[in-house]
Amino acid sequence: MVDGLARIKQDPEPHKTNKVRSVLKLLYKKRWAYYFIAPATILFCIFTVIPVIRSFILAFQEFRLMGNVWVGLDNFKYVLTDPVFHKAMRNTALYTVIMVPQGVLKALVLASILRNLPEAMQTFFRGAYYLPGVASAVVISMVWKWIYDPNFGLFNLILGKFGFGPYPWLTSPKTSLTSIMLMGILTAPGYYIILYLAAMKKIPRELYEVADIDGATPFSKWWNVTLPLLKPTTLYITITSIIGSFQIFTSAYVMTQGGPGYSTMTVVYLIYNTAFRDFEFGLASAQAIVLAAIIVFISIFNFRAFSTDVQY
């Protein structure tokens, strides 16, 4: 009894100790697995986790060459009251609202059309649609900048033949953001088409056969069978498109530098300017955190609204 009491005194939380011991035992038992994931984890920590933590800390500081200064919530206060950030957020949101639905719809329609083509044709179109995705966004933006050029641009050249124009595609605040969106609209979403095609191939044929027996029309089959069963893929594509759209940068940087005025200023371009032109890394970190919070909020909303337990 005395021994027992002494043991309790020595080890006030025996359950906790046992738990730690069992975790250590498990770690030892699976040590090879941890050895194998260690390089990737270390790299992930060095190049992702640490910079993210550092950026979070920076958001509460003012960056100075000779040492940072703590400023509390000042950076966030500035970001939330800055009209330029508001404008950039409005532009980015408008871009997302237009580009995401049309992108998802375009990928879905094109994949649905391709699916009914012979295999060789499918392969050809998959390659054709995917190929532009391999090219650098900078190169694509530069090509489009030339297409929109007020002096030698392809669009104004063609329209000029019919007596129209020249139009200030990128040089007027009224048309600049629309022109950037038009570039996205006229570009095929090759990656998403491939995702949809792969998802469509996974849908069991029996479901279509049953629909045939019921006398369903092709549109009815697409609407009632294909579309619902593509919901997980649509959710994935929607969320990744939203994230991508919120991070729009290259076209604004290469084609318009956010102008004229602030008409094509996007949040990520503003963050870039704040950080790498103005060297206000603290403010840029606060802007990035606000953007990340918005993306996380929208993603959670999407998951709640569209998540499904479709199994097939």
Partner: peptide
């Protein structure tokens, strides 16, 4: 025209 929106390259 469009002076405000042009670039120096334009």
């Amino acid at each position: 025209p469009g002076a405000g929106g042009l670039t120096t390259t334009d």
